[in-house]
């Protein structure tokens, strides 16, 4: 049977689409949100243009506030959020020991949020419908974006200036009460003091301390066998939010760890985080849809 000359390029296009995953998301990388620091960059994951403005999600990586983990680890999450219709901003921030000590990492995240709001028109984003998703240290930082945006102790000094809180927070295994964390080097170096030497600094660095009426809704995703960040962090934060009348939910993963969770086979522990399970994704998207959604 003769092959049409048009069939080859068509087949090639189909194969290219298969290899490329057929994604319609446009990714812009290495955009500076604070020119003062080389690390203060973000990647933008934009869904196809829509008729109306879109909600957006700031994606904040973890890694114990320390080098060397950066935003690459959350690229898949940003991509999937964008494919679900959200404009995703995957950001890096200063890390210990290169300037990320509290409150600088929090200030960087606030600067990124202010930058996103300032550039909302350019990306077709609704500046009043911005959520945040973070894991581990990133869960702590996005919780601070929800509760501490107006706190003088973390007031940013970048060109983008101060901004209000995000409108929804998804904290995956995020520390909420720094005093609950064990006194290991990572924590002491990030906070800048031992707990016994400066308890006020631990309070300042804790999202729990900044809970007040009017903070945005929270979703907590946490494994109940998390040895790094005990699930008690999320439960205490949930109780504090209950006390001020703020909507919050918790998805507990039975037997779930911080970086070891079950994959498709129930017979293995896989090196994946608690926000990677099908149940976590279902809850996260549903939460964003009803807090900052819908997507156009």
């Amino acid at each position: 049977m003769p092959i049409s000359p048009r069939a080859c390029p068509r087949a090639l296009a189909v194969w290219t689409a298969v290899l490329g995953g057929c994604s319609s998301v446009v990714v812009e990388t290495d955009i500076a949100y604070d020119e003062r620091f080389d690390v203060a960059k973000l990647d933008v994951y934009s869904p196809p243009p829509a008729a109306g403005r879109r909600p957006a999600v700031l994606v904040v990586h973890g890694g114990g506030w320390h080098e060397p983990l950066e935003r690459d680890g959350m690229a898949d999450h940003a991509q999937r959020l964008a494919e679900a219709g959200y404009v995703a901003f995957n950001l890096s921030y200063r890390l210990v020991p290169s300037g990320g000590e509290f409150p600088h990492a929090v200030q960087d995240c606030l600067c990124a949020l202010a930058w996103v709001r300032a550039h909302a028109d350019a990306y077709g984003v609704d500046p009043e419908r911005i959520g945040a998703l973070g894991y581990s240290a990133g869960g702590h930082l996005v919780s601070m974006l929800g509760t501490a945006a107006a706190a003088p102790v973390v007031a940013p000094d970048c060109a983008a200036g101060a901004t209000g809180p995000v409108q929804a927070v998804v904290s995956g295994a995020g520390p909420q009460d720094m005093a609950l964390l064990p006194q290991v080097d990572n924590v002491i170096a990030f906070v800048g003091a031992k707990k016994t030497d400066d308890p006020q600094r631990y309070a300042d660095a804790s999202p729990l301390s900044h809970v007040a009426p009017g903070v945005p809704p929270f979703l907590f995703v946490h494994g109940d066998s998390d040895w790094f960040v005990d699930i008690e962090h999320s439960k205490r934060m949930g109780a504090a939010l209950d006390a001020v009348g703020t909507e919050n939910r918790i998805l507990e993963i039975p037997g779930g760890g911080h970086i070891w969770n079950r994959g498709a086979s129930g017979g293995t522990w896989d090196l994946v985080t608690s926000i990677d399970t099908p149940q976590s994704w279902a809850a996260m998207i549903d939460f964003f849809d009803h807090t900052i959604g819908p997507v156009p």
Binding site: R249, L251, E252, R262, T277, P278, Q279, A282, A283
Partner: peptide, 17 residues
């Protein structure tokens, strides 16, 4: 050949696998 059944989420959700 294996079979698995698991409660994969709890709290304010129920997740089953």
């Amino acid at each position: 050949a294996s079979v698995q059944l698991r409660q994969a989420a709890r709290g304010d959700y129920i997740g089953m696998r």
